[in-house]
Amino acid sequence: MRDLLDDLDRWKAQGKPIAIARVIDIEGSGPRDPGAAMAVNGDGEVIGSVSGGCVEGAVVAEALTILHGDNQPRLVTFGYSDDEAFAVGLTCGGIIHLFIQPLTW
């Protein structure tokens, strides 16, 4: 999250709604450790990353759903072996747990 601060400050100053996604846990191998973070604003602009690029697209979609919807935080998991998750699975075969939360604090 350290690397995101300058952009977050700018977005906040511009009054944009922001959601932050953080890696909270990794099962098996994962490209980024817990604490890795990305942020999405209401316009769909993105900073940071939570994997090696494997799940970022899906995270943006989830973050926008939150920002344009109920504004409620949620836990999201990627890397299931079912078909739907296969589309956003990790190339390294691990499972990644994320917490996505609007930056309202």
């Binding site: 999250m1 350290r2 601060l5 977050l8 400050d9 909270i24 409620q72 935080p73 836990l75 917490f99 939360q101 609007p102 604090w105």
Partner: peptide, 25 residues
């Protein structure tokens, strides 16, 4: 939080990610 991180001082965010008061910090 941002001020502490920028000043290279140790800081932590504890967040409820499941259960009552989810999202609280």
């Amino acid at each position: 939080f941002a001020q502490r991180v920028r000043e290279n001082l140790p800081v932590a965010l504890a967040s409820v990610i499941d259960g009552p008061h989810i999202g609280s910090l």
